[in-house]
Amino acid sequence: MQLGFLVDLHLCMGCKGCEIACKVENEVPLSTWRLRVKYVDVGTFPETRRTFTPLRCNHCENAPCERICPVSALHYLENGIVNIDKERCIGCAGCVMACPYGAIYIDPQTQTADKCTYCAHRVASSMMPACVVACPVQANIFGDLDDPMSNISKYITKNQGNIQVRKPEKGTNPHHYYVGGGNVTLNPLASHRIEGHSLFNNITTLPVGGHH
C-alpha cells in the first residue's frame, strides 16, 4: 500500500475548511500550519483571476527530510506516509532546511519538527484525513496509489496528461498530486510575494519555532 493525495484545483474554491480542520484535528499551534491554502491573483485588471492552492507535506518517496534527519525522527510508515516521532526529534531543523516544499515547521510548544502526517492516526483507524472530510467539494482525494480501483488511482487515470507535482526536478517523487495546476499555483518563484501586503494582515515571515 502506498497512500497518496490528489487535489483537483479546478474544484478548490479556497474556503480554507481543510486548513481549519487540520488545525483542529492535530492541535497545530498558533503561527504554524501543516496545511494551508495559498491565494495567488493572476493578470491585470479587468483580466484577472484568483487561484487557490492547498499546500501540505508531499510525502515524497525519496524524502530529503527523512534522509537528513540524524535520529530517524522522520521515518517512513509501511503505507508510504512520512511520519514524525516528536519524542525523538532533537530540533536541528535539518528537515526544515531540506524540504523543498517548505512543509515542515518547528512546533513552538514542543520545539520539535512537525508536519502533515496525512493524519496517520486517523488512517490507522480506517478514517480519512481531516482535510478530506472537511472539503465541501471533494477537491481532496486520498487513497492507495497501488490499488488501481482506489478513487485516487481512477482520478489519476482519468486525468492523465493533466497531473502535476510540485518541483519534479528535485527528484523527490512526491506522493501528492495536483490536477489543473500550473506554474503560478505550483512554482513559488512564479509569483510576487510583496512584503507586508496580504488580504488580512501584513505579517510575511515569523521566527522559526518562536525564536532564533
Binding site: R50, A93, H192, I194, T204, V208
Partner: peptide, 25 residues
C-alpha cells in the same frame, strides 16, 4: 528566467500564511 515569468504572469500572492524566517541563524 524568474523575472520573465513574473512579468508574464503578473501573479501576486494575495493571501498566505507567514512563511518561516531564518531557520539556521
Amino acid at each position: 528566467a524568474v523575472h520573465e515569468i513574473l512579468a508574464a504572469t503578473n501573479a501576486v500572492v494575495t493571501l498566505d500564511v507567514a512563511i518561516p524566517g531564518t531557520v539556521w541563524p
